[in-house]
Each structure stands twice: as structure tokens, then as C-alpha cells.
């Protein structure tokens, strides 16, 4: 094989068409599914932990959990709105992001 022209060189470097794509695509899809399952498990664990913390706090406060929240909302309504918006926004982001 001799490379005398630019065309010869281009032909040498051309990709061939023999790669089988079906298995590759399937593997990519199964990897994405696995990643989503891991994410769902992490979210489930985080939710469970948060629920556990809330339960412990509720028990420790004699199930008077809403009192501090009500006081907070009454004393600082703007700050309460900002906090609530942040929590809802973050939850929405977590739910819809693919990370």
C-alpha cells in the first residue's frame, strides 16, 4: 500500500461499517435503567431517613411538632414563605433531574 495522494490518505483513515450497534444500544439503555434504579433507591433511603428524623423529633416533642412551625410562620411570614418555596423547588428539582 502506497499513500501518494490526499485521497489515498483519506481512504486509509475512513471508518468502516462493520460495528454492530444493536448490542451496544441495549447495553447503554440497561446502564441508564441501572443508574435510575440506584437514584430511586438513594431517594427512597433519603426519604426514609427524613421520615425517621421527623418521627423522632415528634416523639421527643410530645407530638407538638407543628407548634414551632406555626410560631415561625406567625413571627416571620416572609422568611417562612422563602423557606417553603426553596423546599418545594428543591423537591421538584430532585424529582425531575436525571442526576
Amino acid at each position: 500500500m502506497k499513500l501518494s495522494t490526499e485521497q489515498d490518505f483519506q481512504q486509509l483513515l475512513e471508518y468502516s461499517d462493520y460495528l454492530d450497534g444493536a448490542n451496544f444500544v441495549e447495553t447503554v439503555q440497561s446502564n441508564i435503567k441501572k443508574q435510575q434504579q440506584i437514584r430511586q433507591r438513594i431517594l427512597a433511603i433519603a426519604t426514609f431517613c427524613a421520615a425517621l428524623v421527623v418521627l423522632v423529633i415528634a416523639i421527643m416533642s410530645g407530638f407538638q411538632l407543628w407548634l414551632p412551625l406555626i410560631e415561625f410562620a406567625q413571627n416571620s411570614p416572609y422568611l417562612f414563605t422563602v423557606a417553603l418555596t426553596s423546599i418545594v423547588g428543591f423537591s421538584f428539582f430532585i424529582r425531575h433531574s436525571k442526576i
Binding site: D17, G21, V25, Q29
Partner: peptide, 20 residues
């Protein structure tokens, strides 16, 4: 829509040049 079929089409189209 998080459409998996659409993503699979993109993978099918670009797997060849990226793998090469």
C-alpha cells in the same frame, strides 16, 4: 418527556463514529 426511545435513536446514530 425523558423519552428513552428518542435517546436510543441518538445512540444508534452516533455509536459508530464515537466507538471508532
Amino acid at each position: 418527556d425523558n423519552d428513552q426511545h428518542a435517546f436510543a435513536s441518538l445512540v444508534r446514530k452516533y455509536q459508530h463514529p464515537i466507538r471508532h
